[in-house]
């Protein structure tokens, strides 16, 4: 009787573990996860105005991207040693505002344009836990080369940099932050970010 009970318990446990296996397998195909995220973002971008207005679209996009894009890590690295100059509230504000600026400028690019055609290359292994997925986005006649760098982090595969026509966005922001903090303060940066968001 006991054996039968234990067997049932073991079978249940094994099934539970096996059920968990697909998530492990999914982690071995991060490019698929990336493609799915980008596809979902594009779907949101092309929802009709009745289905979602621009503000709702941005919120939805941020929600989708947040699962695959490590914005806090990207912005943390871009800030570099300047992080020491910031208190926790300032750090949070800069992270939220910079992410918002990125998402706003991204959504603006697609406004009134026809649905883009995305193509993805096979991933290239950069190191043991890092890959790069090159892609091209074609909107009408314009084609832009994008490359996503992903790392296997504690939370799973996450995008930690995007290269636009070979230009690393993380390095680009890092340079801008370095120049900013040579002459101005964290409060000035927050103010500039708010202004830029209003302009976008």
């Amino acid at each position: 009787m006991n054996i039968a009970k234990n067997f049932r318990y073991l079978a249940g446990l094994s099934l539970a573990l096996l059920a968990g296996l697909p998530s492990l397998t999914a982690e071995t195909a991060p490019e698929k996860k990336l493609q799915s995220t980008i596809s979902k973002v594009i779907d949101v971008l092309y929802l009709s105005d009745e289905e979602a207005d621009l503000v709702q679209k941005r919120e939805l996009i941020l929600e989708i991207m947040d699962k695959s894009f490590s914005f806090d890590v990207m912005i943390g690295y871009a800030l570099g040693r300047n992080k020491k100059l910031l208190n926790e509230d300032q750090m949070d504000s800069i992270t939220v505002l910079t992410t918002d600026l990125l998402v706003r400028s991204f959504t603006k690019e697609f406004k009134n344009a026809s649905r883009p055609v995305m193509t993805f290359d096979e991933p290239v292994q950069l190191t043991k836990n890092k890959i790069e997925v090159a892609s091209s986005v074609k909107i009408e006649d314009t084609e832009v080369q994008l490359a996503y760098r992903l790392a296997r982090m504690k939370s799973g595969w996450q995008v930690y940099d995007i290269l636009v026509e070979g230009v690393s966005m993380v390095s680009n922001y890092r340079k801008q932050f370095q120049e900013h903090f040579q002459r101005k303060t964290a409060e000035d940066l927050i103010e500039i970010l708010r202004e830029r968001i209003n302009q976008t």
């Binding site: 910079t98 600026l101 990125l102 706003r104 400028s105 991204f106 603006k108 690019e109 832009v144 636009v164 026509e165 070979g166 230009v167 690393s168 966005m169 390095s171 680009n172 922001y173 340079k175 801008q176 932050f177 120049e179 900013h180 940066l189 500039i192 970010l193 830029r196 976008t200």
Partner: peptide, 21 residues
């Protein structure tokens, strides 16, 4: 335009993009 739109300081952003490329 895409680079300028997401920049904190468009001048510095374009300068760095040129140097990186």
């Amino acid at each position: 335009e895409s680079l300028k739109g997401s920049a904190i300081d468009p001048y510095e952003s374009v300068k760095d993009a040129y140097i990186q490329r």
